[in-house]
Nucleic acid binder design. Sequence first.
DNA 1: TGTACATCAGTGAACGCGCGTTCACTGATGTAC
DNA 2: TGTACATCAGTGAACGCGCGTTCACTGATGTAC
Lengths: 204, 204
Amino acid sequence: MGRMSSFERLRENEREIRKELIITAAMELFEKKNFWDISMRDIANTAGVSASSLYRYFPSRDDLFIEALLQDISHIEKLLKERMVKGEEGIEALAIAVVDYCLDNEPTFQMMCHFLMRGDENPSVNEKFNSVQLRFLEMFEKVVKSIAGEDAVTEFHIQAFFASLSGIVMTFRHFPGYTDDERRAYIHKLALLIMREGGTIGKS
Amino acid sequence: MGRMSSFERLRENEREIRKELIITAAMELFEKKNFWDISMRDIANTAGVSASSLYRYFPSRDDLFIEALLQDISHIEKLLKERMVKGEEGIEALAIAVVDYCLDNEPTFQMMCHFLMRGDENPSVNEKFNSVQLRFLEMFEKVVKSIAGEDAVTEFHIQAFFASLSGIVMTFRHFPGYTDDERRAYIHKLALLIMREGGTIGKS
DNA sequence: TGTACATCAGTGAACGCGCGTTCACTGATGTAC
DNA sequence: TGTACATCAGTGAACGCGCGTTCACTGATGTAC
């Protein structure tokens, strides 16, 4: 960044605050809409600015949402840690917590899947998402190790583990013929199955 | 359907054949394009008809692709069985085969994820996709049981199992910093981890 | 103190695009009597 | 055999939409001298 006058720093701060406000507006919309149905105009309206203003702060819609995703990481981390402190313990409780987060924050989950699926297009967006993905996995690693101990688990296990959970959520999130609660219970069950007995299939 | 004259039956057959040709055209495009970048006009051009003609056969784009997905099921089933016959054996080989299919047929995988993620919108499409999803899972169940035996596995295991594989593929399909081959090897590794030692995390 | 200039947040209007889909129509084929 | 009618595949042109994004501009604030 180099030297900055106090004024410059102040302006820079204000700029960051405004970015923050825009992202907050976007995340408010998550309570009302699908990730895919949120337009730049929606976000602008919610933030109380014009659509063109958004482009002063984010080069594109994708860039904006990547930053929202970045926010979510710390949000999730905090939430998981809280749940762990509250007496729920062990990797299995963590898995349930992760699943619940995905179910209770659909647009975040949609957003993540969106970026995972589109591995092409704008290279700058891609690069940003890649680093977000890495931070995600690091965050999970950190949380798992704080529960199971430093050496109990390899990086690979953790990765396989969280990727599996998202697959289960994705596959059964709208499974037909159940109420929301039943679906959640079902997903919990499958998640625990993976955690506990993944390896026992066909071995008995 | 009731009684049909021979002429009516003939016409009905021709109609089915034309539908087939359209779907084939769509699947040809899978070799060139993303699922999301294939437009009705693209399909029409490839099939050698006008875009408006497609609507004589399919009420909407989604309906068209659902039928393509339906085709894929039998395609995958055949392919998995072939691989199993060729001497590769066991659930683990099956997992690798499934992963490979997803990696080698990106647009099919994208299409599946697309419908899994959009659990709203057109209800008729939804209903169709739900039945496709059920058939998918039944197909996997059938294949697994033909390998591991009728009673070796529960429905739940199989579901958790395939959902996990798709999660792993989705998460690491574009993981940065690897070549395609390395990525594939990495995904194989994670898939096998889930199959073999899912339950051992944090238990040692 | 005043004047000329630079910076930047913010805006309304418009661009440009491509999409899925519909519409009114043609022309071929078969049917009824 | 001929005539009137029904059915349906197929089409080109257009609809209608909403999107992300850009543009030319205003107005406030700070800076240089």
